[in-house]
């Protein structure tokens, strides 16, 4: 049932121009960076900034907007003998999968042409981009289900983006300034692991040699994120950031009056 429904949601999304635009953007941006910047590290940093900024923003804004625009589609499905969880899952994966495909292909094609696809940095970038897509669409859906007014939920989605992509790091910095006299490595690792965007950034940065610049702190991070515990914590954090919002959204969706 789920896959059958998913098929139609996918077809609807795939014919919309947004996914094509999204794909085109990654294609052009990646190729542009590969063409114009010298050195793998610089290219990866440029790509990383795009992935870390744009994927959450696009997922939050488009995810919220899409659910509001799909109200009629949703009502049509709800009036059929289909479980609400099935509908919600189909809606979520129906949006996530085309965007994942657009991102992965848009990034992988140029990097493959330039022979960089198998570099650990590019692979980690692809992996974290996929994780961020899953996380922020899940969050977007919660916002869209919980806030009925379209403009208000778009506003909320933007605030969430601003908070997690920009302001959160300001907070982390403020904490490191306030508690400068204390050993903060563990605390900063915890703060970073708690924010999917920061976590994605650290995972990508650990794959290129920037960690050497980080001195003692960097060594602590590398030890942590390089070993089984760190990998588990990272995977768990990104996993929870996907599953928990998805679960909250699905529950709210199940109880929602249309």
């Amino acid at each position: 049932m789920m896959t059958r429904l998913l098929g139609f949601v996918l077809r609807d999304i795939a014919r919309g121009r947004w996914v094509i635009l999204y794909f085109g953007f990654f294609l052009v941006a990646t190729e542009g960076l590969l063409y114009f910047t010298a050195g793998e590290a610089k290219t990866v940093v440029g790509l990383m900034n795009i992935v870390l900024m744009l994927i959450p923003l696009a997922a939050l804004m488009f995810g919220t907007l899409h659910l509001h625009h799909s109200r009629d589609f949703i009502e049509l499905m709800l009036s059929q003998p289909v479980k609400r969880f099935t509908i919600y899952s189909a809606l979520y994966f129906g949006v996530v999968l085309p965007f994942l495909g657009a991102f992965v292909l848009g990034t992988a094609i140029p990097t493959a042409i330039h022979g960089m696809l198998t570099s650990p940095s590019v692979l980690s970038l692809l992996a974290t981009g996929v994780a961020l897509t899953l996380v922020f669409f899940a969050i977007a859906f919660v916002v869209a289900v919980k806030i009925n007014d379209k403009a208000a939920s778009m506003g909320m989605a933007f605030i969430i983006w601003l908070a997690s992509a920009v302001l959160y790091d300001g907070l982390v910095l403020a904490v490191t300034v306030w508690y400068a006299d204390y050993p903060l490595e563990t605390a900063t690792i915890a703060m970073v692991a708690a924010n999917p965007i920061d976590l994605a950034r650290i995972i990508v940065m650990l794959t290129f040699d920037y960690v050497a610049l980080m001195g003692y702190t960097g060594a602590v991070f590398q030890n942590f994120f390089g070993e089984a515990l760190g990998i588990t914590v990272s995977a768990l954090s990104l996993g929870l950031w996907t599953v928990i919002p998805f679960w909250i959204g699905a529950r709210a969706f199940a109880k929602k009056d249309w």
């Binding site: 790091d169 910095l173 490191t176 702190t217």
Partner: peptide
């Protein structure tokens, strides 16, 4: 300068806030 005084803040390298 920040990294100089607060080595932990190196974890924010390449973040949007730091670029800003």
């Amino acid at each position: 300068l920040l990294v100089e005084q607060l080595p932990s803040s190196v974890i924010l390298m390449h973040s949007a806030f730091v670029n800003l």
